[in-house]
């Protein structure tokens, strides 16, 4: 498992951790039941405070990506296609929103944006 922490971005470190672990689960690099490092050992390995990792793990657990059992550590939760889909859709919405805003401020008409999106989607 690899986690890259950048200190040169406004994205909080706990979000950097959650988004990378989520990505690893979604692309299959981490499978259901795979152990993930304990909070304290991850904190040590990536040189961040324990509470930062704790917050990341709490968020992952809340969103159903991992399960934590006292004494046994944390594991990748049984895959649930719906929430993965939901996560991806949220991401798509985020990007589309950005695209829509950029187009609106730039005076680019909606049909043009749809046309561009169609090209990207079908050719990608």
């Amino acid at each position: 498992m690899e986690i890259i922490i950048s200190s040169n971005t406004s994205k909080p470190i706990y979000e950097q951790i959650t988004s990378q672990i989520k990505a690893m689960i979604m692309n299959g690099e981490l499978q259901t039941g795979d152990p993930i490092p304990s909070m304290r050992s991850l904190a040590k390995s990536i040189h961040v405070s324990v509470i930062t990792v704790q917050k990341a793990y709490e968020d992952l657990q809340r969103d159903g990506f991992i399960e934590t059992t006292v004494g046994r550590g944390s594991f990748v939760a049984a895959k649930n296609r719906d929430f993965i889909q939901e996560e991806l859709q949220k991401k798509v919405e985020e990007y589309l929103n950005l695209a829509a805003e950029t187009a609106r401020t730039g005076g680019i008409p909606l049909p043009k944006v749809i046309e561009l999106l169609t090209i990207f989607y079908t050719e990608g």
Binding site: R40, S41, A43, K44, H47, V50
Partner: peptide
């Protein structure tokens, strides 16, 4: 700093 984080690996 690494030594400190290692120290608090014990909760």
């Amino acid at each position: 700093l690494g030594v400190f984080l290692e120290f608090v690996e014990d909760e």
